[in-house]
Every structure is written in C-alpha cells, then in structure tokens.
C-alpha cells in the first residue's frame, strides 16, 4: 500500500495500470467537471448571482469609466498640448499696414517658428459666424476687435521669455501665453489619473473581498459535502477546485457586466459629445475601450474572482475536517 498506493488497487479485474497520462486525463476531467458543476450552481440561483455580478461589475466599471473619460480629455487636449502659442493683441490704434509689417518682422525672427496675422476684419467675421450675432455685429459702426498676431515659438525657445520681450513692444497691447492653462490642464489631468488609480485600487480590493465573502458562504453551505469528500480521501486540491471555479465564474461575469456598463455609458454619451465637438469645429468622437479592452476587463474580473476564491478557500477550507 505504502508509496505507490494506487497501483496495487488497480490490479484485479481490470488489470489496468494507471500511468501518468491517465492521471493527467483524470485531473483534466475533474477540472472540466468542476468548472461545469460550479457554473451550474452559479446559474441555479440567478437572482443572487446577478446581484454579485452587478456589484462586481459596478465596482470595476467605475474606475474604468473614469479612466476612459480621462483618456478622452487627453486626446482632446493633445491638439493644444504641444507647442505653446503666444497671442499678441495689438493696440487699437495700430492700422493694417503696421500690423502687416509687424507680422512680417516677427515671421522673419529666428526664435519664431510661425507667425500668423488675424486682421480685425477677419476676426469679426469669424466671431459673427460662430456666435450667430451677425445681424447685431453688422450694425456696429466700429469694429471693437484689435488685430491679432499668433506667434509659435521655435523649438528650444523659452516661451515665457519671448512673451515678455514681445509684450514690451509699443504696438502690442497684450501678449498672452496660451500655455499656462494647458499646463494647468495637464497637472489637473495628472491629478485625475492618480485619483482614478487610487480609486481603482480601493475598488479592486473591494471586489476581492466581495468575492471572498461570496465563496465563504458557498463553502459554508457545502460543509457536509466537504467533510464527506475529505473522509473518502479527497485532497485539498480536489476540494478546493470547485470553489476556485465558482470564484472564476463570478469574476468573469462581473467583468463582462463592467464592460457592458462602460459600453452603454459611451453609447449614451457619444452623440451629445460629438454634437458639442461640432460646435468647436471638430469631428471628435469618444474613444472607447474596444474589444481588447473589454476582453481584458473580463480577464481582470476572472483573475480577481480567482484571487477572492483563493483567499476564502485558504482561510476556511482547512478548518473543515471530518469530526
């Protein structure tokens, strides 16, 4: 009996010897059996399973949705993000000729990558079109807008130094560095990203706890069965297996629900967002999580399910011994 306990028992009628291959097959069979059995148990109580799935799904969807929102904000701001731009509002007294020669002088400078002139007439026309106030504006005697020169510093040039220099020019009323608010936006987004990660960490921890508790209850309700299985020689791995699969199914379902929630939210928001974008003359559409992202979310759910189940199983299964 001792070491190779299995071998002698197999002699007798069948005379077949268990080989490594058979062990592997048996192990695989028990895996698919446990997986199917656990799934059946999960589906057998649809109401409570659905609640578990929803709880996990919402907890996972929240940080993912916030992450998606941030990603979209990054895409939108990306277009403003890169080179800083200095808007030079010329003094009201400056006429078209002076503005044009200033523009030409600026464009020729080595520390300026690009300069473009928006004449006061062009600015008014654009404003009228965008605002819909064209009737009102047409009746104005005087154009209240100044000439505007947009200056993009060359790479390697400190934009604030250039801004200070240009602001000192007589013809320039005001020099506004557009980068300040871009920087502010960037650091806000950085803060947002950190918050999302922190939130994700807390919620993931919560998901593991929810799953751990669900599996603990499953273990508790099958205590008798565990005792019997251990009594007839079931190893810890054998007893553990169905519960790990239960955790996996809860996690996978929760991940799928999370992906679904995010997709629904995106679908719900995409139309108003792109309508808003059109107002800003952009054909921007929301960036989603895609098929790969959805699959990753389901996988993440499954992984968390396994982790929670493992937590519960290692804490509670050992305590159940035949008495």
């Amino acid at each position: 009996m001792k070491g190779a306990a299995a071998a002698p028992r197999r002699e007798g009628a069948s005379a077949s010897r268990t080989r490594l291959r058979d062990h592997y097959r048996a192990w695989r069979d028990h895996h698919s059996l446990s997986a199917a059995d656990s799934l059946r148990r999960v589906l057998d109580s649809p109401a409570s399973s659905l609640l578990t799935w929803l709880a996990i799904g919402i907890a996972l969807a929240l940080p993912v949705a916030l992450g998606v929102a941030l990603e979209n904000a990054r895409v939108v701001s990306g277009s403003w993000d890169s080179p800083a731009r200095i808007s030079l509002f010329l003094a009201p007294a400056v006429d078209d000729g002076t503005a044009a020669s200033l523009h030409a002088r600026l464009a020729a400078r080595g520390d300026v990558a690009e300069a473009s002139l928006v004449s006061r007439e062009a600015a008014l026309a654009e404003f009228a079109e965008l605002s819909g106030f064209d009737d009102v504006l047409a009746n104005l005697d005087d154009n209240p807008l100044p000439h505007l020169v947009l200056v993009t510093p060359a790479t390697g040039v400190a934009p604030d130094a250039l801004q200070a220099e240009l602001a000192a020019l007589d013809t320039v009323d005001q020099a506004v560095l557009d980068m300040a608010w871009v920087q502010r936006l960037n650091s806000l987004m950085d803060l947002g990203r950190r918050l999302v990660w922190a939130l994700a960490g807390v919620l993931v921890f919560g998901v593991v706890l929810i799953l751990g508790n669900t599996i603990r209850l499953a273990i508790e309700s099958r205590r008798e069965e565990i005792v019997i299985v251990k009594l007839v020689g079931g190893s810890n791995a054998f007893v553990r297996r169905p519960f790990l699969y239960t955790g996996l199914w809860y996690g996978v379902g929760g991940g799928a629900i999370a992906a679904l929630l995010v997709l629904c939210a995106l679908w719900y928001l995409d139309e108003p967002v792109s309508r808003l974008a059109q107002l800003y003359q952009s054909d921007f559409h929301l960036v989603g999580i895609g098929l790969i992202g959805s699959l990753q979310l389901v996988l993440l759910g499954g992984g968390l399910g396994l982790a929670g189940a493992w937590l519960a199983v290692s804490r509670h299964l050992g305590a159940i011994e035949p008495r």
Binding site: R25, W27, I228, V232, G233, S235
Partner: peptide
C-alpha cells in the same frame, strides 16, 4: 455524515473513484 443529498445514488458511490481519478467507463 453519510451521503451527498444533492447527488444521486450512482454519483455518491462513484465519489471515491472520481477522487482517485478513474476513467468514467471504469
């Protein structure tokens, strides 16, 4: 503690063999 009450007679008796990893015909 004797039988698993949510499994039929066959499955109850088969339990030690499933644990030991016999194939289903055996």
């Amino acid at each position: 503690h004797q039988l698993l009450f949510d499994r039929n007679v066959f499955d109850n008796v088969a339990l030690p063999l499933v644990i030991a990893g016999y194939d289903h015909r055996e």
